[in-house]
């Protein structure tokens, strides 16, 4: 198996508009006064400051692809027909994870306890977007390195729990990326703690 690579405290380039969209903002309908908009933007900045985005990834060899199963080195099998379709032109795959750490989730919890629900809601949406942007950052970073080697990454990435890539595959990512070493916990229901942690897989095409 290839080495696990780790980047800490990455400054991700999230889109504020996507945080607003997560919260139900509709460009053509929603009206928000400047003062309130400033307040929400400030909360987003505060959430950003609390998100310490760590990123890990590992390049895995794809040793076989069957109709609905991807086989990685070490004979690791992931069952998903949509993933098999995504990786059909890939000889390798990138398994990746991003976490925003526990400060942000602890703060969201505290805010709820003291009745600051709107703030908690905005922090929560911001943290989700910022964590996702961590994986965007990694894909951009790797794409730039691969392009000169005549390789590229698949446009899409899949995460456990989406489509037919069952959430139970979280276990594969957890083990291979040694997420335990990052202080991340996997529950018996395949949830990652801290809550703002995401995993995904993309293909390397050459």
């Amino acid at each position: 198996m290839n080495r696990i690579k780790f980047y800490r405290n990455v400054k991700t380039q999230y889109k504020k508009s996507l945080i607003y969209t997560r919260l139900g903002y509709e460009k053509t309908n929603t009206v928000i006064e400047p003062g309130r908009k400033r307040e929400l933007d400030k909360w987003i900045s505060e959430a950003e400051a609390l998100c310490k985005v760590d990123i890990v990834y590992q390049v895995a060899e794809i040793t076989g692809i069957e109709e609905n199963t991807v086989i990685l080195d070490n004979n690791e099998r992931i069952t998903s027909s949509s993933l098999a379709a995504l990786l059909r032109n890939s000889g390798e795959a990138v398994l990746m994870a991003a976490t925003s750490g526990s400060f942000i989730t602890e703060r969201i919890e505290q805010l709820q306890q003291i009745g600051e629900m709107a703030k908690a809601l905005v922090y929560d949406a911001a943290a989700s977007e910022i964590t996702d942007a961590g994986l965007d950052w990694l894909m951009g970073f790797l794409k730039q390195q691969y392009i000169r080697e005549g390789k590229t990454l698949t446009r899409m990435r899949y995460s456990p729990g989406y489509g037919d890539l069952d959430l139970s595959n979280q276990d594969v990512f957890y083990r291979r990326l040694n997420l335990k070493g990052l202080g991340i916990e996997l529950t018996s229901r395949y949830m990652l703690i801290p809550e703002k942690t995401v995993t995904a897989i993309a293909g390397i095409e050459s």
């Binding site: 139900g24 903002y25 929603t30 928000i32 309130r36 929400l40 009745g115 629900m117």
Partner: peptide, 18 residues
């Protein structure tokens, strides 16, 4: 409901009401 307000506005109002 008319989407003039989005979720943070709804919840801020709910907090004020509480």
């Amino acid at each position: 409901q008319e989407r003039v307000y989005f979720l943070p506005q709804l919840i801020q109002s709910a907090e004020a009401m509480e």
